[in-house]
């Protein structure tokens, strides 16, 4: 006996059809809405906007408010206008920190760029064990900063420095080098550690850029009699410039706002000679509890970074235009 199939083709029962029809209609409406580009954009962007709003815009807004108020730990404070910024500007330690931050960022970025480029060019060649070398090169970047900085701190230890011990035993020095106990030395030590840590990021990014350069260009230049330096200067460098600008922008942002490295290595000492803006803001805002003043110091990084990033991105756009 042939069983009638409810809802079969051409025999749709009213009740059975009603619900699926409604769902289908809803689906059509939703699909229609999603077809609308404006609505789709809104749907896709909303989670990101919410997350950015919660974790970036809100803290930033709070930071700006703090900087304009007399808030301290446990006291809500009141609006004081630009008083905290004026106080910071008249503060000799702030000026030292600002100068240190600029020197630290400038030299560390230069060193990271030069050494990173050199490393990338070496790693772009074919040699045995290339993969292992590439992987191990990333170690300084992978190891948590606090951990690696502690290791450097032991190496620079005023009493037990392995570097001093080695130099002394090999006859290069007769008295200990004041790695961290002299303000100038300490800042350069911090630059060395930052370079060591950040160089792999440059190297690996530039290496990725190098691998996109067509080898035919190098071959053609060789045939035209260009030596290694000329091939680099006239072929490699112009093609790497966009990647370099991007990686330098990232590095400047990270280095200018660096905190962990100095906090672990010197704590800003001796006598504030290694304070960066971030560590000084932390000392004032968090340790001393003057949240408003700390926020103002911290916010002073923003215009500097904004100008630097703006110039570099403009340059990048011009490169792309060319």
């Amino acid at each position: 006996m042939k069983n009638p199939i409810a809802g079969g083709a051409g025999r749709a029962a009213p009740v059975e059809v009603a619900l699926p029809h409604s769902r289908a209609s809803q689906r059509r409406t939703l699909t229609g809405l999603l077809e609308n580009e404006r609505f789709l954009a809104l749907v896709l962007l909303t989670p990101t906007v919410l997350i950015l709003g919660m974790f970036i815009a809100y803290p930033f807004g709070m930071g700006v408010w703090f900087a304009l108020s007399s808030i301290s730990v446990g006291n809500p404070g009141h609006f004081v206008g630009l008083k905290n910024f004026v106080k910071a500007w008249n503060d000799s330690i702030f000026r030292i920190a600002f100068w240190n931050t600029s020197v630290y960022t400038f030299w560390a970025t230069i060193f990271k760029l030069v050494l990173g480029m050199w490393l990338a060019l070496l790693l772009n060649r074919h040699f045995r064990g290339k993969r292992i070398v590439r992987a191990s090169m990333l170690l300084p970047f992978i190891v948590p900063t606090v951990l690696s900085t502690f290791a450097w701190r032991w190496m620079f230890d005023p009493t037990f420095s392995v570097l001093n011990w080695t130099l002394y035993k090999t006859g290069f020095i007769v008295t200990k080098l004041p790695f961290l106990s002299n303000g100038d030395w300490a800042l350069w030590c911090a630059i060395v550690v930052n370079t060591w840590r950040g160089m792999p990021f440059f190297a690996i990014t530039l290496l990725a850029g190098l691998q996109t350069i067509n080898t035919d260009l190098h071959e053609a230049a060789s045939l035209d009699g260009a030596n290694g330096w000329k091939r680099f200067w006239y072929v490699t460098w112009p093609l790497l410039k966009p990647v370099t600008v991007v990686v330098v922008v990232f590095s400047i942002i990270q280095t200018f706002s660096d905190f962990q490295l100095i906090y672990v290595l010197t704590g800003g000492g001796p006598a504030n000679s290694t304070h960066l803006l971030a560590t000084y803001a932390y000392q004032i805002g968090v340790a001393a509890g003057l949240l408003g003043e700390g926020a103002a110091i911290s916010l002073c990084m923003l215009p500097v970074l904004f100008v630097v990033v703006w110039i570099q991105l403009r340059y990048l756009r011009r490169l792309e235009g060319a």
Binding site: P158, F160, P178, L180, N182, A186, T266, G267, G269
Partner: peptide, 15 residues
Amino acid sequence: DEGGLAWDDTNNNRA
């Protein structure tokens, strides 16, 4: 010991 400028509270114990 002029390295004391870079000491924290544990350095003198160890030294």
